[in-house]
């Protein structure tokens, strides 16, 4: 998160977010007839559409209020070119977490094929490197973190994780040990 976001988001970026929220909530409310059912029996208070329509109605209303306030503010104080440029950069920065989430998805997939300990080690070292932590001390800190996690979650708490196929290549005793601890 940039320093700017910590002190106050860009107005145009905030409005873009509100527009997305408003459109999504309005679309969901518009789908109430197809996404829920009306039942002939039972009173109005039992109808399945009642609660979603109340929740989405409030959501649409609050998003509309927020949007109205933001539009009014922008009309009152039109944005400068710098602010427009900053808004474009800020909106593009929404993609940055997607990169890290992609790595996370790959990590989840990899643990099934490498085992928890190996997968976690690869993920921690790669993510540290990608985050700019490339000195030896961060490599050692990563190793320490993985050791801590394996000891706490696999050995200590016994959290089960699926065993990868290559564990079958080991003798039974070693395979059992790998499945239990790694």
């Amino acid at each position: 998160m940039s320093e700017k976001k910590e002190t106050g988001a860009n107005r145009l970026e905030a409005m873009a977010l509100t527009v997305i929220f408003f459109l999504c909530s309005a679309t969901l409310l518009g789908l109430i007839g197809t996404a829920t059912r009306t039942n002939a029996r039972g009173g109005w208070w039992t109808q399945p559409w009642l609660m979603p329509s109340l929740a989405l109605g409030v959501l649409v209303l609050t998003n509309a209020i927020t949007l109205w306030r933001e539009v009014a503010d922008i009309r009152k104080h039109p944005p400068s070119q710098d602010e427009k440029q900053a808004a474009r950069s800020a909106i593009l920065s929404w993609l940055l977490p997607l990169e890290f989430l992609t790595y996370f998805g790959a990590y989840v997939w990899a643990t099934q094929h490498t085992g928890y300990a190996v997968g976690t080690l690869l993920f921690v070292l790669f993510l540290s490197w990608r985050a700019g932590l490339r000195e030896k001390r961060w490599f050692l800190a990563g190793l320490g973190l993985v050791l801590f996690m394996v000891l706490v979650f696999r050995v200590g708490l016994g959290v089960w994780m699926p065993a990868p196929d290559y564990y079958d290549l080991f003798p039974k005793e070693i395979r059992t040990m790998l499945m239990r601890w790694f």
């Binding site: 909530s25 996404a35 059912r37 039942n39 609660m51 979603p52 929740a55 306030r69």
Partner: peptide
């Protein structure tokens, strides 16, 4: 206003799935 929107969003999320009165699907 933002807190109300967040709370309403949470209420909506809670309605997703099979509801109990008629066992019909919602969203």
């Amino acid at each position: 206003v933002e807190a109300t929107a967040a709370m309403a969003f949470g209420l909506f999320l809670a309605t997703i799935g099979i509801e109990t009165a008629f066992s019909t699907q919602r969203y």
